[in-house]
């Protein structure tokens, strides 16, 4: 198999006294679409931020193209980071800027392109996510949840990244808008070869776009020494898995959890 584009090796992460990730191993390969699932708070966002170099591991190593991220120089790290586009769970649009400035931000910050060129790129991106150019003048506070997600996506795509991380792109959207976002993920992938890493609770997304599924389990529910990655395989394997924790998550079956609560 080819060299992984991104890799976590024995990565643990702690915030204060709270340990969130324990000795995670994860590889992301060129041109694949990896879906990360797991219940809320199990550390999916932390995992993607570690992959994107926005957080540092407490112990363990993050590799980009086989190179230890901690050993990269500041400029090298910046150059590599710009190859990763990140759609944040909350969209994370800059409140102080309008939509146009939000999408143009990375271009203004990192390129010397003429404003007219930037305007063209931004307008292309706005149309590519299914919005009209006149939303460019609106402030993030004037947008609906679905529009914010799409603007966030346009912003993440403006620098033409090779790797795109989507953190819960469909959470909080109505079913139709969810499907619009799923289609956007697919068309983005079809337009050029990219790596997609998607965090989601949406089994539609898993079915529709995933090449490979990885499931994380909250550390609080594990004994010392038990692995935190409880499933890794194709979507079909995920849907047919008999492993209790995977089965109940994938099929939205709360029987076991309710039994546990009744016992407690």
């Amino acid at each position: 198999m080819s060299m992984p584009a991104l890799e976590l090796k024995q990565v643990s992460r702690q915030f204060g006294t709270q340990q969130v990730l324990r000795e995670i191993d994860l590889q992301v390969f060129p041109e694949e679409t990896l879906v990360l699932i797991g219940e809320s708070g199990c550390g999916k966002s932390v995992t993607t931020k570690l992959l994107a170099g926005m957080l540092e591991p407490t112990t363990g190593t993050v590799f980009w193209q086989g190179r230890d991220v901690a050993s990269l120089s500041a400029e090298e790290k910046l150059r590599q980071r710009l190859k990763i586009g990140y759609l944040f769970q909350s969209a994370a649009l800059f409140d102080s800027m309008n939509v146009y400035e939000n999408i143009a931000f990375g271009l203004h910050q990192n390129t010397d392109l003429k404003e007219s060129t930037i305007r063209e790129i931004v307008q292309d991106q706005i149309r590519a996510v299914g919005l009209t150019v006149d939303v460019g003048r609106k402030k993030p506070s004037e947008l609906s949840g679905g529009m914010r997600k799409r603007v966030g996506l346009a912003r993440a795509l403006a620098l033409a990244p090779e790797i795109i991380i989507y953190d819960e792109p469909t959470t909080g959207l109505d079913p139709v808008m969810s499907d619009v976002v799923n289609e956007l993920i697919i068309t983005t992938r079809e337009r050029r070869p990219v790596i997609s890493i998607i965090v989601t609770h949406d089994m539609h997304t898993v079915q529709k776009v995933a090449d490979r599924v990885v499931m994380l389990f909250p550390l609080a529910g594990l004994e010392p020494g038990q692995p935190q990655v409880i499933f890794e395989g194709t979507p079909e394997q995920a849907f047919s898995s008999r492993e209790e924790r995977v089965y109940s998550f994938v099929h939205g079956d709360a029987t076991r959890r309710l039994q546990k609560l009744a016992l407690a």
């Binding site: 980071r81 710009l82 990763i84 990140y86 944040f88 994370a92 409140d95 910050q109």
Partner: peptide, 17 residues
């Protein structure tokens, strides 16, 4: 603080600022 908790600080970093 608001920018931090709404991930806008992370977004700055992700966009090379």
């Amino acid at each position: 603080g608001t920018m931090r908790v709404t991930e806008q600080v992370d977004a700055l970093e992700a966009l090379g600022a």
